[in-house]
Design a binder for these strands. Structure first.
Lengths: 339, 339
DNA sequence: ATATTTACAACAAACGCTTGCGTTATTTCA
DNA sequence: TGAAATAACGCAAGCGTTTGTTGTAAATAT
């Protein structure tokens, strides 16, 4: 039946008016008579007319689409962030083009390329673990596509980003453990390439010194975040001469692996503190006693808002100094519910 | 510097050739001389030329975008499915426009509308828990936008879908428990509105009768999948006169709640079997002894493949009877690794 | 040397829609 | 009654690309 979608032209022909009249009628332009307006709208309705967005986008050079590139949707941090992004995007009449890099720098590059050819109006990016070059993003700037990074941000100047400050949350976490009486606190940290690893370390150190305790670097061990890596780290922890009685882990997965291992070697007395990623971890029998919450939904919202603002900002007229949004969302220590 | 993106026209002007020549040169058309080709390509490179997809899509009336609407990304079934969808979409040169209904029928309707105005070439949908009317999808057909449902499919004739058959997996699960010696097996099922609940029940019944055992309907209790609902169901289970020694739960969340509750009332001896959703559940100390795997990644791939085939199929020339793809992915019982 | 093919490139239309401007009637005011 | 204001609509350009057709020179065949 309905083969090709109805066009404005067909309506015009049937009603024996010009296409411009139809267009204006549909857009409630003031210079169109009420009767013609009605006739046009009625027929449009009947014919199931839907304006061809492709044509309109093409005409305006805008797509009302924001691209989102993130490492892994299955990580609940990101799926929560996406919800935030979606919510503001829809509220502001944008749609979301989503893609996962699967923590692969190559793929990430490819995706940026794809987004570029799709001519998204802006890009929201959380970079992959393995990304070490950043030209593909510069490239976007050349095409006037604003980029806002969130959570996993590259070590660059002159970028827009939204990220959480893990330093304060970590400070709170370590401080909490100290107040609880722990004196030897271990930390299973992430790879040094991540800014987040440094922030955690800083928070740890600050908490120690704030409590007039000596900071023992050997109590912080790096880890590639895999299960094997975690077990290696745990072996170091458990064999440490200072016998840590509490451990701060890089994320919930690491916590899970670590706790599991601790239990298997009968060291269940160790207290764990982690960073909130997995909602279900609270349902476990042996779970972290506290978590540093990073508010992914809020971060997503914020980032999307900034991006869309950026998109709609009048072009930087050569003279105007470009301002960069650097939003830091404070993290917060949340004590686990007693179960 | 670079304000507006470079166009083919500018290249033409600079090189003093026609736009068509430039276009053909860039597309390696045979009727363009090698030297001009080179000149054009070189300049295009220098000017950072990127073809304006909006214009191209508009011209062809195609967007090379498939829309995906699903309930919740944070459910790992869906995030896995998305990965499958993405993979085939990219391989076949499509991009993915994603949206979550958050299990809200209203929002789902809205999203379909949005997808329609965005003129996606096709739609992949897993309907929300609360969806009960389906006209919004019919609407797509009128615009010649093919729709393929996956996993959560509506009870309609004449639709394309990919879904898993939970009946066989459930049969295997119950059968497995019976072979293991259990004689009283409970099932915490989902709401009756879901087809999946029925399939589970059917599988349960078939396994019982296949083993010449009487089927006791009171051993299957419904549940709204919340924690409270699960605890209610568990109370019924635990108070049942036949004392179930094994329980099949609707999904991993329910399993988690149930196991936790079982442990808290010291009934840790009960064996659980669930449906695989959460990868991390295997890291728990007290976890299901087996899971029914539904292969979300595979389902996603399959669904996307069908959709894109549909998109590229020559239009149904009035006479040709439309064929509907109804793909069933068999589920499979996976025994948990001994840990 | 003339006719015919070949190689290369330009012209122009088309996709659906918006919008500045021009063109009619019709009304309003002096 | 004539001039100017107003209302209602049509014309046509333009957004960036692709593509069928046409044009023109050089190369080949006769």
């Amino acid at each position: 039946m309905t083969d090709k979608p109805t066009t404005i032209k067909e309506i015009a022909k049937i009603l024996k008016v010009s296409v411009s009249t139809v267009s204006r009628a549909l857009n409630d332009h003031s210079s169109i008579g009420l009767t013609t307006k009605m006739r046009v709208k009625k027929l449009a309705e009947e014919l199931n007319y839907e304006p061809n967005q492709k044509a309109i986008q093409f005409l305006h050079g805008k797509s009302f689409v924001v691209g989102v590139i993130l490492p892994e949707l299955s990580e609940s941090f990101f799926s929560a962030a996406i919800s935030g992004i979606e919510d503001v995007a829809y509220k502001r009449n944008y749609t979301v083009l989503l893609a996962q890099s699967h923590d692969n720098a190559e793929r990430e590059k490819l995706l940026v390329e794809k987004m570029k050819t799709q001519r998204v109006d802006g890009l929201l990016v959380s970079i992959s673990k393995t990304t070490s070059t950043y030209e593909h993003f510069d490239n976007c700037r050349k095409l006037n596509i604003p980029v806002v990074f969130f959570d996993r941000i590259p070590p660059l100047k002159d970028i827009h980003y939204v990220a959480s400050n893990l330093e304060t949350g970590t400070f709170e976490a370590v401080n909490f453990l100290l107040k609880k009486g722990h004196r030897s606190i271990g930390m299973i940290n992430g790879p040094n390439t991540l800014i987040a690893s440094h922030e955690r370390k800083e928070g740890y150190i600050r908490a120690m010194t704030a409590n007039r305790l000596k900071y023992d670097p050997s109590l912080i061990v790096g880890c590639d975040l895999s299960e094997e890596g975690t077990i290696n780290a745990m072996d170091i922890m458990l064999g440490h001469r200072r016998k840590p009685t509490a451990i701060v882990t890089f994320n919930d997965y690491v916590a899970l692996f670590a706790m599991h291992y601790a239990k298997s070697v009968n060291r269940q007395e160790i207290d764990f503190v982690s960073y909130a990623n997995l909602p279900i971890i609270n349902y476990m029998d042996y779970s972290p006693i506290a978590s540093v919450e990073q508010f992914p939904y809020k971060q997503g919202k914020k980032a999307a808002d900034i991006l869309i603002d950026l998109i709609n900002k009048p072009k930087n007229d050569s003279g105007t100094e470009q301002a960069y949004f650097n939003i830091v969302v404070e993290s917060e220590l949340i004590l686990s519910k007693q179960r």
